[in-house]
Simulated assay, not measured.
Amino acid sequence: MHALAGLATTTYPAHLFEVLIAYGCQPSVQRNAAARAARGAILYFLDDDSVVEPDFLERAACHYRDGRVAAVGGPSLTPASDTPLQRAIGIAFASAVGGGGVRNRYRKSGSARYSSDNELILCNLSFRRDLFLAHEGLDERLYPNEENELMDRLQREGHQLVHDPELAVERSQRRSYRAFVRQMYGYGRGRGEQTLIAGALKPITLAPSLLLIYALVVPLLGIPLLMLPLLAYFAIALLASLQGSLASKDAGVFPRLLLVYPTLHLVYGAGVIRGLLRPRYRGGKQTHWDVEVRRVKAFSD
């Protein structure tokens, strides 16, 4: 497990932190169970493939000296050792055309700052444990987007969120195109479900869905003039693919980016529609799943 290997090299005093692993099939439920079992003041959530820097706990702890701060996190970077497809996915996520307002989740940009859920990602995110538990943790009806829903609630109450670009982890992208399609559909569906739970719609949420509907309907109308925006979209995707390939000095990602960009937008848009029309959750907030939490390292004092 990559995360455990990285934790073995941390420079944070060994007797001041503990490590718990939550096993199960519903990540939001697993994380809540681990949070209840934890004994520290700060919860730090990592995925099992998140590769951390040795000083990451020290960097995160410094931000919590500000009593207004409820959550601290950093970006998830794509390793240079990933395959061309994985690198293309990482480039798209980190670009204005692909990632848009959430692209800083996937790149180092600027300095540490107060931020929003747009820049924070759960594979590299910490919370004050008392606030996390006081808000009943992550909404267990959601996966993904469970962290976004919680951070929205915290910010509405006046708490601050911090994005620190130097608090970065490395984490590989999906290995196959099929897995990437499932990922984007799940991301979109989670956003649609989160929108229903929050009862507030961000207009940008619907942009990929409107693009999908437009791309499906306009060719059927047989009006060439209405095809111009669609052609403009593909021209933008072409230019973004070329720019991504040149900026990364990696010609191998260019043909893959040509596929990744439309997939990212259109499949995500389909997921949003599904999440809005047929959410997976039913009834109240809590669900029941089998979860096992193992404490692999405990406080030593």
Rank of each mutant, 00 (worst) to 15 (best):
M1F: 10
H2T: 03
A5N: 12
A8W: 09
P13L: 00
S28M: 05
D48F: 08
V51E: 11
V51W: 14
P54S: 11
Y64S: 02
V69C: 03
A71C: 10
G73K: 02
T83S: 15
P84W: 10
R87I: 01
A88T: 04
G99H: 07
G100D: 07
N104P: 03
S111E: 12
R113A: 14
S115G: 06
D130G: 04
F132N: 00
H135M: 03
E136P: 01
L150R: 00
Q160R: 14
V162P: 04
H163R: 06
H163S: 05
E166Y: 11
R171Y: 10
R175N: 05
S176T: 15
Y177L: 14
Y177K: 12
Q183C: 11
Q183T: 05
Q183A: 10
M184Y: 01
Y185C: 08
Y185G: 07
G190D: 02
G192Y: 09
A200T: 02
A200R: 14
L201H: 13
P203Y: 10
T205P: 01
T205F: 01
L206W: 13
S209N: 03
L211G: 02
L211C: 04
Y214E: 04
G222E: 07
P224Y: 10
L230C: 05
L231T: 03
L231C: 13
Y233W: 13
F234W: 14
Q243K: 12
G244P: 01
A247C: 12
A247K: 13
K249P: 00
K249W: 12
K249M: 09
R256Q: 14
L259H: 11
P262L: 02
I273C: 12
R274G: 04
R278Y: 09
Y281D: 02
G283K: 14
Q286L: 15
T287W: 03
W289G: 06
E292V: 10
R295A: 10
F299T: 00
